[in-house]
């Protein structure tokens, strides 16, 4: 059984299509990245999974349960970090977590204590005195404290300092190691690259691509610089379809290669090569390539 399934899920506000025919499947025990710029439909998707808003058409299930009919049962098994939120300012972190834990029928206090220690969160202070980052920590603790089977994280690291971010990534890795599922929505590509195995890329409410991070990187554009023993020939790689923007300068040739380097290396073998530098593509490069590809297609 899939952890999350969306079938033709759509949300329209009049003529505006916040989400359009989203088909998605998240496997149990995986950390699934949901990438897109602001306004792409990421939050809309998560809010429909929690039954905060209702689909115009299509349906979604979480842990095999229909999001409309069984939302309470789903929420019992799901932890959620909203992208934007306000905590009850009059309470301390301890009181807020105690209140939310009561609504869940009780939570092991040791789990809360352990999470607070790891995220360096002072739960005794009134929430109104906390910075945004410290409020974010409390929000993360409430999502994790009941050890939910599925975590829905909407831009979860916003406001966290780098050290806490590292600890948070470790927590996500532990959740995955325990066989639980994480749906990780973000526009910070490097963190998705770090924690997710598969990624969905969404743009203007439409799904562009679902692939593993490795697959996406294989299709990525990488910048290659080749140093020859003699003068570089700008037309040497003209017959290689993966190569573009080749520029020769002295004994160096700079170009952009999409996907595998195999054909490029074989073409270079005709000349004496001193050095090849290939920059590892970031997921950001992948995203931008796909993003523009989608824009061109549209």
């Amino acid at each position: 059984m899939s952890a999350i399934v969306a079938s033709g899920l759509a949300k329209w506000y009049g003529k505006t299509r916040a989400l359009d025919d989203l088909d998605l499947e998240v496997h149990p025990g995986e950390v699934f990245g949901f990438l897109g710029p602001n306004g792409a439909g990421k939050t809309t998707t998560i809010r429909m999974l929690l039954d905060f808003i209702r689909p115009t058409h299509g349906r979604a299930t979480v842990l095999g349960l229909d999001c409309r009919r069984h939302s309470t049962r789903i929420r019992r098994r799901v932890g959620y970090v909203p992208g934007e939120f306000t905590l009850y300012e009059s309470l301390t972190g301890e009181q807020l977590l105690g209140f939310l834990a009561s609504l869940r029928g009780g939570v092991d206090g040791r789990v809360i204590g352990d999470l607070a220690r790891r995220l360096d969160s002072d739960l005794r202070r009134p929430i109104r005195e906390l910075s945004h980052g410290n409020k974010q920590k409390i929000c993360i603790i409430q999502a994790l404290m009941s050890r939910p089977e599925v975590l829905l994280l909407d831009e979860p690291t916003t406001g966290l300092d780098p050290l806490v971010q590292q600890e948070f990534y470790r927590l996500v890795a532990e959740v995955r190691a325990e066989g639980r599922t994480v749906f990780f929505s973000s526009h910070i590509l490097s963190e998705v690259e770090r924690v997710c195995r598969r990624v969905a890329i969404i743009r203007q409410g439409r799904l562009l691509k679902v692939a593993t991070v490795a697959e996406l990187k294989a299709k990525a554009l990488r910048r290659v610089t080749v140093t020859f023993a003699g003068p570089a020939d700008g037309k040497l790689l003209a017959a290689v379809p993966q190569v573009r923007d080749a520029v020769a300068e002295g004994n160096r040739l700079c170009c952009v290669v999409q996907g595998s380097l195999d054909a490029t290396i074989k073409a270079l073998a005709a000349r004496e090569v001193i050095d090849v530098i290939s920059q590892e593509p970031s997921l950001e490069d992948v995203f931008l390539a796909l993003y523009h590809e989608g824009a061109d297609a549209a």
Binding site: P82, F85, Y88
Partner: peptide, 14 residues
């Protein structure tokens, strides 16, 4: 309006 309802309604309460 204060956006505190998301956290409340994310709990298993009808």
């Amino acid at each position: 309006e204060r956006r505190s309802i998301d956290l409340l309604m994310a709990q298993p309460i009808r």
